[in-house]
């Protein structure tokens, strides 16, 4: 039974990674950049909900909506101020280094505003845990909500991209920015939209993450953020189902590694997975092979 418990724990953690990875993979597919600050947007989202529910006494659902709005605005601002000026820079490192700077900026702003002490995050989920097999297998309410949220987001996002006009425009921009511009697509607008959606998802991921793992401090987002990027690479960067599969697999690997190999080495195991994937199949499980042209 402990095996099944670990498996469910892994899928739950993996679902959070998957939601974060969606943000990475969309931005990477469309803006062709690694948004290092994505993990810290998660932390901002979680802090917004924390402050709104504990200090302002807002209903959790309204607080989540507020967090999504704040994170969306933040995502658009970050893109506008820090990343857009560097689009078309001579070195691809320029925007990557700036993104690291933004990540640091967010962490340290949070440190300034909220202090370094870890806050204990009160779960927003009120569903009672599900007891199976005579109480030997307990599935917590958080796990159920996380997994359902993950599935809903995945279906919603796929429908959005395949059925709506802005979604199709996103696909076009990710294929060829120049050609998309010639077709009358507002490329800058689409990239901003991508950041907005990714950041709104980050807010949800932050709330789900902190509901399951209730310790919240300014660095809460950075490690899950990096691991979610690993998940996005694992599944194939730019692919939405890939981010989902990669996220869940990575969550399961991490929990199993923690349980059966070594608790201190769990992070190292996750990173080892990344290295193996990049060496064996650099495009990830569902990624497309990109031919480099001269």
């Amino acid at each position: 039974m402990s095996f099944l418990n670990y498996l469910i724990g892994g899928i739950s953690l993996g679902s959070v990674y998957a939601i974060i990875a969606l943000g990475y993979t969309m931005v990477y597919g469309i803006a062709k950049m690694l948004n290092f600050a994505h993990g810290d947007v998660i932390m901002i989202g979680a802090f917004t909900v924390f402050i709104a529910t504990t200090q302002a006494g807002i209903h959790p659902l309204a607080a989540i909506l507020l967090a999504m709005v704040i994170c969306t605005v933040m995502g658009i601002l970050i893109e506008r101020i820090a990343y857009r000026p560097l689009r078309g820079a001579a070195s691809p490192l320029a925007v990557l280094i700036t993104a690291i700077g933004v990540s640091y900026l967010l962490q340290n702003l949070a440190l300034l505003w909220f202090g370094s002490n870890a806050k204990s995050f009160k779960s927003v989920v009120t569903i009672p845990p599900l007891r199976l097999a005579g109480g030997a297998l307990i599935i917590s309410g958080e796990t159920i909500v996380t997994i359902i949220a993950c599935i809903v987001i995945m279906i919603g996002l796929t429908t959005f991209i395949n059925k709506t006009k802005p979604g199709q425009a996103m696909l076009a921009v990710s294929e060829d920015q120049g050609a998309a511009r010639l077709m009358g697509i507002n490329v800058n607008g689409i990239i901003a939209l991508t950041f907005a959606i990714g950041s709104a998802l980050a807010a949800i991921a932050g709330v789900l993450l902190c509901s399951s793992y209730p310790s919240l401090d300014p660095y809460t987002g950075s490690m899950p953020g990096i691991k979610a990027f690993v998940a996005a690479v694992f599944g194939g960067i730019g692919s939405i189902p890939g981010a989902m599969i990669g996220g869940i697999l990575l969550g399961v690997i991490e929990i199993f590694g923690r349980a059966y190999i070594s608790a201190q080495m769990a992070d190292a195991i996750v990173f080892a997975v990344l290295i193996v994937v990049l060496l064996v199949r650099p495009t990830g499980l569902l990624g497309k092979k990109i031919q480099e042209k001269v």
């Binding site: 560097l86 320029a94 280094i97 700036t98 690291i100 700077g101 640091y104 900026l105 340290n108 702003l109």
Partner: peptide
């Protein structure tokens, strides 16, 4: 570290 972050972004 906040100042480092701002220095990094502005210079880039």
């Amino acid at each position: 570290m906040l100042i480092y972050a701002i220095v990094l972004i502005v210079i880039m």
